[in-house]
Design a protein around this nucleic acid. Structure first.
Length: 499
DNA sequence: AGGCTGGAAGCTCGGGTCGA
DNA sequence: TCGACCCGAGCTTCCAGCCT
């Protein structure tokens, strides 16, 4: 972990280069004591959400628009200490996209947090139009599709915190590897779904609703929020910042300023860029600084930042930025200065390297996400041709047997085994959805039926023959018993000649 | 009337290249 | 170091039409 000393060193370096000639504006800090406790939470402004501390500090939602499908991203904080954050996209074929979490998902996540705040339940049952509305996303057809896409990404994307996930019981250095998905489960229900009746009231909200979703928030994130390891934000405060770089800076500053308990803070621009994250290639430094400056202008315009000052010395690379905060406090500021001020150990983490891994490599390496699948899923998974077995197909099987039946899925697996030529997972998914194996299954069922019928017939025939034989024997014995002594001797003499 | 759908055009912004 | 320019995925906006 990068120690706080390093930041101090950075500051010293800047001083040595005589860059730190910033004249701080006169700032007087007013303090008022409120002694807030649980019962004061009722006065939280409408539209407040909790933002969990780990999610604040890390680039969970990529700002990169050129992100490719089936590509993971690893943000390395320290090669030596093996500290990194890695985001691996889902390659479940049924998902709309196989990308890592992106900017749009962040907005949708705010919406989920809002519903969580309203209901207090980890399980969120809602519909896309409502989710868009409270996420601050314009209603548009395309956005409806993307909301679904986004939920799937939150379920499918694995976020690996290696030695960097902070939680309540964490003290000192964080040594564990933690893999989470923002959503631990996701179920999409259409009206014709078997379970739709149970959730009818959620469909009744609007006659035009075709689908609703049932999503469960990740338990570690929820646990942290229950332990007050979060900051409060008004959802409008976040969504009115259209520039995503500005939004990320605002969110991180809210954490840092109350941790540092200061009305102004300084960071190197390199550090800031690494955390947003923005490119820090030599040829692009000036543009990155410009982007950060644009973001600051936006924050100042919206009144989220009192002022800022960028200090550029002889070298662009060593530039720093000072942020100045308003001392006027609203209810959220007061809460934020009280809760979530723990040192999480992330404050000085600097991303030193970003690795991008393409799908081929992703598939080659075993994804170490251990999941609990049902017995049926495990058994069906073994039916898949060995060379086509990918751990993630278990998700597809698990989902499919819920929707259809074990026999239905099995028949389609066998069909895919026989007929898939190029892309097995894709073919299997299509096969299950369209029941390609219907004919095979019916043929097989018919074959079994005929076989059973034949066996039954043969059994009956055998029984009949036995019955007849028994009857003949009985009659013979009966007749033998009734013979006169003369006839019996004649009969025995005749039979003794037969070998 | 208001919510939903489907499609399309145009804009945004980070990133890349180049030359002064 | 910096401005000019281009690229392109993502995003917004708009329109026409449908459903309840």
């Amino acid at each position: 972990m990068v120690k706080f000393n390093q930041l101090l060193d950075d500051k010293k370096k800047v001083k040595n280069n005589k860059i730190s000639d910033t004249i701080l504006p006169e700032i007087t800090q007013e303090e008022e004591l409120y002694n807030l406790d649980e019962k004061d939470f009722a006065v939280l402004p409408v539209g407040s959400i909790k933002y969990e501390l780990n999610l604040i500090e890390f680039p969970i939602f990529s700002k990169d628009k050129k992100i490719k499908e089936n590509t993971s991203r690893k943000y390395i904080f320290s090669e030596k200490n093996d500290e990194y954050l890695e985001i691996i996209p889902s390659n479940i074929q049924s998902n709309l996209s196989k990308k890592i979490l992106q900017e749009f998902d962040e907005l949708i996540f705010y919406g989920l947090m809002r519903i969580y705040e309203e209901t207090g339940s980890r399980e969120i049952i809602s519909n896309y139009p409502y989710l868009l509305k409270i996420s601050g996303v314009n209603y548009a057809n395309e956005n409806l599709r993307r909301a679904k896409d986004s939920l799937q990404r939150m379920k499918g994307c694995s976020i690996i915190f290696n030695s960097c996930f902070f939680s309540k019981n964490q003290s000192g250095s964080i040594r564990e590897t933690k893999t989470i998905n923002l959503l631990s489960s996701l179920r999409i229900l259409t009206l014709d779904d078997k379970l739709a009746k149970i959730y009818q009231k959620y469909f009744d909200k609007h006659k035009n609703l075709k689908e609703i979703f049932i999503a469960t928030l990740n338990e570690d994130i929820v646990a942290n929020m229950e332990n007050k390891l979060h900051k409060y934000f008004r959802i409008e405060d976040l969504t009115e910042i259209k520039n995503s770089t500005a939004r990320k800076i605002y969110v991180m500053l809210t954490k840092w300023r109350y941790w540092q308990k200061d009305v102004s803070i300084r960071r190197t621009i390199k550090f800031l860029a690494s955390r947003i994250p923005l490119s820090w290639k030599k040829t692009n430094l000036s543009k990155t600084i410009k982007s950060i400056e644009n973001a600051c202008v936006e924050l100042k315009r919206l009144g989220k930042l009192k002022d800022y000052k960028i200090n550029i010395g002889t070298k662009l690379e060593e530039s720093t930025i000072d942020f100045y905060f308003d001392t006027k406090k609203n209810i959220l500021d007061i809460l934020n200065s009280k809760f979530g001020i723990e040192e999480t150990g992330h404050e000085n983490l600097e991303i030193v390297n970003v690795e991008i891994v393409e799908q081929k490599l992703l598939e080659e390496r075993e994804i170490e996400i251990k999941k609990n699948y049902s017995c049926e899923t495990e058994l069906l998974y073994r039916q898949i041709n060995k060379k086509e077995q990918i751990e993630l197909l278990k998700d597809l099987i698990e989902e499919s047997i819920k929707k259809y039946s074990v026999n239905y899925v099995k028949s389609n697996i066998l069909y895919a085994n026989k007929n898939s030529k190029v892309n097995y997972p894709h073919f299997l998914k299509k096969s299950i959805n369209n029941d390609y194996a219907k004919m095979d299954r019916e043929k097989e069922e018919k074959k079994i039926k005929i076989k059973l019928e034949k066996e039954e017939e043969a059994k009956k025939k055998l029984e009949k023959i036995e019955q007849e034989e028994n009857e003949l024997n009985r009659l013979a014995i009966e007749k033998y018993g009734k013979m006169t002594e003369k006839s019996m001797k004649k009969y025995e003499k005749y039979y003794s000649k037969i070998p």
